[in-house]
Amino acid sequence: MLGWMAWTWPTALLFVGIFSAIGFLTVLELKFPGGAERVGILRLTTTRGDRLFITLLGTAYIFLAWLGLVGMPLWWPLAISIGWGVFCFWKV
């Protein structure tokens, strides 16, 4: 049934990761409503969901920039992305 979608394990895991992050945020929101809103270091008002979005979008750009400017392997952009995610949830 899903054959036409040409699934691979890595891409499936990527989506499982994104959807479980969204699911986790939903559970958090039900337990602690309000989205933990605050004004971060970029002077933006962000909720948990905003911070996840900024993390994911930034990660995409870090990997694309590395692929375009440097190439393989991708351990460094992975480390930078994790750092970026921590920074987003901590300060932004």
Binding site: G3, W4, M5, A6, T8, F15, L64, M72, L74
Partner: peptide, 29 residues
């Protein structure tokens, strides 16, 4: 999601796909 799946594979039609990793991204960029 299908586009994401296509982006890491090569196909010659017939719904047959071969894993290519992130090569296409690097090539395009």
């Amino acid at each position: 999601m299908t586009v994401v799946n296509y982006s890491v594979q090569e196909t010659f039609g017939d719904n047959l796909f071969f894993w290519e990793g992130l090569r296409w991204f690097q090539e395009v960029l």
